[in-house]
Simulated assay, not measured.
Amino acid sequence: MLEAVGAFAWYGLRVIELRQTEDFDLGSVVLGRTRAPGEILLYEQPAREAARLRDFMRFDVLLHELGHHLLQHRARKVGNIQRRSDHERFSDAFAAQWKPVVQAALDTSHQRVLDGR
């Protein structure tokens, strides 16, 4: 997935970590989070939802958090930054732009495996 987006977006990214859900505010749902510098956290989801959420987590949440990483890296932020609405819009647009590219790359890769190439 990262190869399909390109190194410009993940340069400086040190880790993508899968984590157990933390005790968040009961009124909110947290799927992922970007921590500076260079860390993306993706939180587990209920097992009964896992198959349905897999692609959403991969294509939407991870790409969205990668957009935040790109913003932080470009601004050379070294600590956690306050999220603003323009950051969220940028990250949403980044995910929307790259989702079809990543899906096509993964489909092609999957087909090569099936064909034995």
Rank of each mutant, 00 (worst) to 15 (best):
H87M: 05
R19T: 09
G6N: 06
Q111F: 03
V102L: 10
V78P: 05
R35F: 07
P37M: 13
R89A: 14
L31P: 10
R83Q: 13
R35H: 08
I40L: 06
R14W: 11
S28A: 15
V113I: 07
A93C: 09
V102W: 04
L2G: 10
L53R: 08
A105D: 04
I40G: 02
A51Q: 09
R35D: 02
L13S: 12
I16N: 01
G12R: 01
R54N: 07
R117Q: 13
S28H: 14
L26F: 11
R74K: 11
V102M: 05
A104D: 12
T34A: 04
A7T: 15
H64C: 06
I16E: 09
A95N: 14
A7P: 14
G38Q: 10
V102F: 01
F56T: 11
V78W: 03
H73M: 00
V15D: 13
H68D: 07
L66G: 06
D107H: 15
E65G: 01
H87S: 12
G27E: 15
D23A: 11
R33L: 02
A7Q: 12
V102I: 05
I81T: 15
M1F: 00
H68N: 09
Q111L: 13
F94A: 11
D107Q: 15
E49Q: 02
D23W: 00
E49K: 09
F8T: 04
D25E: 04
L13G: 03
Q103H: 12
Y11A: 14
A51F: 05
G116W: 08
A96H: 04
H73E: 06
L71F: 12
L18A: 11
F94T: 07
T21D: 11
F8Y: 12
M57N: 14
I81Q: 14
L26T: 11
K99P: 05
N80W: 12
Q103E: 11
H87Q: 05
D23I: 05
A9F: 06
E88I: 01
I40Y: 12
R112E: 15
V113Q: 05
H64M: 10
P37F: 02
R33H: 04
S109M: 15
I16L: 08
L2D: 02
Q45H: 10
Y43P: 04
L13H: 08
V30A: 05
V78E: 01
E17Q: 15
R117E: 05
R48A: 00
R58W: 07
L62M: 06
I16A: 05
P37R: 11
M1Y: 02
Q72C: 07
E22N: 10
I16Q: 05
V113A: 02
P37V: 01
E65H: 00
L42H: 04
E44L: 13
G12F: 10
Y11R: 13
V30G: 00
R54H: 07
Y11E: 14
D115Q: 12
F90H: 03
D55M: 02
A9H: 11
F59N: 09
Q103V: 14
R117I: 10
G27I: 14
A4K: 01
V30W: 09
P37Q: 07
K77N: 10
R48K: 09
A4E: 00
R117C: 00
R76Y: 11
V102D: 10
A50P: 04
Q82L: 14
F59R: 01
G32S: 08
D60W: 03
T108R: 04
